[in-house]
Structures are given as structure tokens and as C-alpha cells.
Amino acid sequence: MNIIRRELKTNLKPFAFWTAGLFILTFVGMTKYLGVGAEGVDLNAISDRFPRVILAFIGMADADTRTLSGFYAVIAYFAAICVSLYSLSLGFNAVSREAADKTYEFLFTKPRKRRDILSAKLGAAVILITLFNLLNCVFPLAAASALGFREDISREVLLFYAAAYLVSMLFFSISVLLSVLAREAEQGARRANLVFVFAFVMGVVCDTLENPGALRLLSPLRYFATSELLSGRLSPSYAALCILLTVATGALAIRLFERKDLTAA
């Protein structure tokens, strides 16, 4: 319990920072919703004509920004990026904070198994990820009601929230595994960030192609395609894949951590 409490406490400040970021993103984003052209000008008619690759870059492929739900889908895309980045940082911090601080002897000579220590740290991180994702569900709903939009988007918010939660947990496990495998603390963080950049680029590629096929397996950010979520469907097979990969990488990371050569670097 001590470990969980301590972890939560040290992570409080970054949590506040990320929450502020998510808040700005969601609230400010929602105020930008125009609805169907004011003054007889339909700007969406223009974005409809933009080639897919441009829309993919700004997260607007497959989203009809004339409707509030479609507009929200664009914000949800950026929110998913934000949630995933936060999860990545929690992942490598949980594994390598003490190694980076060169204080690992203090923690790992305590009469607790390594596995238990890491599990407690990961547990604390999962709590934070869950909280952060809940905010990702609360903010858009609050923004929609505060701005007085009449259209109901609670179903979309719930679906995008669930998708972002699953994906961020996957990124979290990947980041944990990479940090366990890395020799130096910095290496783990760098590789985790690289995996994310790769996933982002693959996401843009997937959006550019209308039928990405197997490529979609390589881009967790697009496991739950915008068009599917907007039609009210959370792909069960991809959800299963996501959970499976998360549990498998997490379990593997904990096993490998027991045999990791802890060095202060």
C-alpha cells in the first residue's frame, strides 16, 4: 500500500499538468463547432473536397464536421493522442524512475518481492490512467452542456472514451515492456516515444487509404475506426485484441523484470 500511495503522490503534479492540457483541448475545441454554415457559408463543403491525406493529418477523415458528433470525433482523436502520450510516460516512469534517480537500491532492498513492487507501481499507474480517461469522458459532456448544444452526443462520447481507454492501456503496457527491456532508463523512454510516432504515422497512412486491411493491425490509434465508432459500434475483435495484447505484454514485462539487471543508468 505504501508504494501505491507514494506513486500516486509523486505523479500528482504531472497529472494536474496533463489534465489542464486535456481540458484546454476539449473545451476550446468544442467552442469551435460551427454547425451548418452560418451566414449561408458552408465551409464544410470545402473540407469535403480536400484530399483524404490532408484530412488524415488533421484527424478529419471519415468525420462529418457538420454534425456535432462528427466534430467531436475530431477532438476525440486529439484527446486519444493526449491520453496515449500520458500513458506512455506513466509506463516508463513506473519501471525506471528509481534507476534514473539512481536510488534503486533503496527500494529494491526492501523486504518485498520485485514482482510485488512493480505490480504496485503499475497498479498506481493504472488508477491514474483510469482517472484520466474518466476525465476524457466527463470533459466533452460538460463542454457540450455548458455550451448549450442541443444535439445529444453522450453515446459517441462513451464509445470514444472506451476506445481511448483500451488503446491507452495498450500503449502503457508497451511502454512498460520496452522500459523493462532497455538497458538504460532513457533508452526505454526514447523507444516508447518512437513506437508512438510510428503508430501515429501508420494511423495517418490508414486514414489515407480507404481500406487499410492488415495495416490497421500496426496502428493502435486506428484500431477503433472513426467511422465505426460514429455508427455506434466498438469493434469487438479489436477490443479483444487490444485487451489480449495489453495483458500479454504486461505479464511478460513483470516476468522479465524479475530477472532484470538493475543498474543505475
Partner: peptide, 22 residues
């Protein structure tokens, strides 16, 4: 303390990106 170089850099860049979005 600077725990992670890439973490710090990513936070700075992401913050700047949010400000531009704003």
C-alpha cells in the same frame, strides 16, 4: 531532477502544440 530527456522534450513540444491549437 531530469529523469528523462525525451520525456521533458516531449512535454515542452506538446505544451507548445496545445498553445498553438488554442
Amino acid at each position: 531532477r531530469v529523469r528523462s530527456v525525451s520525456g521533458t522534450a516531449a512535454a515542452i513540444a506538446f505544451g507548445a502544440f496545445l498553445l498553438s491549437a488554442l
